Simulated assay, not measured.
Amino acid sequence: MAFFAILPLLYLLTIVQAGLAAHPQTCPPTLSRSLPAPTDLPIIEALPDPWTFFNNASLKSPADWACRKAELLTLVQEYMYGYYPDTSRETVKASRDGDTLVVTVSVGKKSGKFNVTLSMPTNVNATRRDPVPVVISAGGVNDTVFLGSGVALATFTVTDVAADSTTPGGVFWDLYSGEDIGVITAWAWGFNRILDAIIEVVPEFDQKRVGVIGCSRDGKAALAAGIFDERITLTMPMSSGLEGIAPWRFQFQELGENEKITNITGYAPYWTNTNLLKFVNNSHQIPFDSHLNVALVAPRAIIWDEGTIDYWTNPEGEARVTFLASKAVYDWLGASDKIGVAIRDSGHCDIFGYTNIQAFMLKEFFGTPTDRNYSDISPYTPYPTAYPWIDSAPGKSLG
């Protein structure tokens, strides 16, 4: 796919970042599709430095973040996600029948559709004049946490969008057959097209208070959805593991094995583009890590949940490494209260996880005060070996 496929995203990124800084430095040359092969990239032992451009030039202040964010968006697409489709070529139409939303997407003469289930809050009357926040959910959640808090749900099945299989199937592949795009990106595209449909025919949902959520592989997709769509105000990846919140470079396996790139490329290589498979022998050559995927959401809000005995998803790495490294970027941007981690003493996709993030969600959607410290990584401790650059952020915070 041509590099121009990401231009609409970069344009949107520029508009959003205008509120952060009026006069960034001149950006380094835009990265092209002639980037190095994975095997030709340098080995980076620690987490890649957020404040160093791909050409090794240094950022000078938070005003430069828009430039860095734009090149990171290219890097994660080139080496992991595949290039997000050019949505300017798409036509999205929505129809609504009771609690069913039908999303139809067309590209040229190709077309496909999938269904979404709408659930209204139980304690408020959602109207065009008084719209409610909405969370787009990949699969079921603890409904009470959302509907009982005045938050609507729009729930879909990711496999209707793209099959969880090496054999392409679903609406996305009806439109983009043959493209080197990961299924995680296809699922993220599904979240984003649902938001298009909501904007078109569900005026009771507040377009300025939109969340995305998913657990496990759906959590990987929720993170990608937050990365690729600046309209999403709260991203909530649950128990997402590798290709989500877990770091590529640092595993903590004293109590149980962590998911690794060799595992994923063995049982689900189609989750990403083919370039990622070429890092299987050295993940230290990946020019980003999970902290930079999280930082691509900045300065919008993100909260993730993890269970201390969910060893496969590397909860220790998500807290000790990813959280503290990505929070440094949020702090630098003056958005310290927009990132959080919620740790619980249980396993994979525990239903308590939704209660675990509830206070953060209510703070973001309604301004509800909370005493919960969502920067607390206990029972874990910081792992400074992973981020030797953490105290070298250039310039001042914008906060």
Rank of each mutant, 00 (worst) to 15 (best):
D143R: 07
A301T: 06
D99G: 10
S216F: 00
F228W: 12
D289W: 04
K60D: 15
V201P: 01
I198W: 00
T274I: 12
I184W: 01
I136N: 01
Q17K: 07
V16P: 07
V280C: 12
D40S: 14
D97N: 14
T185L: 09
G266Y: 12
F228C: 06
V141P: 02
A197C: 03
I377L: 12
T14E: 12
T370H: 09
D40M: 09
R193W: 00
V92R: 04
V107K: 14
K327S: 03
P203S: 03
L118V: 08
A328W: 00
T100I: 15
L13P: 04
L72D: 03
D97S: 15
V171R: 02
I199F: 10
V107E: 13
T52A: 05
F54V: 08
A342P: 01
T235Y: 02
V76P: 00
S375Y: 11
I15E: 08
P269D: 08
Y83C: 02
T265H: 15
S34F: 14
R193Y: 00
P384D: 09
P203F: 04
T262H: 12
K327N: 07
Q358N: 14
D143S: 12
Y83F: 10
D160G: 14
E316Y: 14
D174C: 13
E316I: 11
A319G: 07
E254K: 13
G266H: 12
R344E: 11
Y387P: 04
D305P: 07
E254T: 10
Q17S: 06
T87N: 03
V134T: 06
R209H: 09
E243Y: 01
Q25F: 13
L7T: 15
E78P: 11
L277C: 12
D130P: 09
P394W: 13
S61R: 11
V151M: 08
W248S: 11
F365H: 10
V16M: 13
R300A: 05
F252R: 07
R128Q: 15
P384T: 08
T185G: 07
A298N: 04
I351L: 15
T185E: 04
Y267Q: 09
V105I: 04
S397R: 12
I339Y: 09
A18F: 11
P48A: 02
N263E: 06
V92P: 03
W389K: 03
F250K: 06
L292G: 02
I43P: 13
A335W: 00
S119D: 13
I377E: 10
A386H: 05
A22W: 07
L362M: 10
L59C: 04
A66L: 05
T155M: 14
V76N: 02
P394L: 10
D160I: 12
V183I: 07
L292K: 01
S34K: 10
T52I: 06
S378V: 10
I43E: 14
N263F: 05
N258R: 11
D305G: 13
V210W: 03
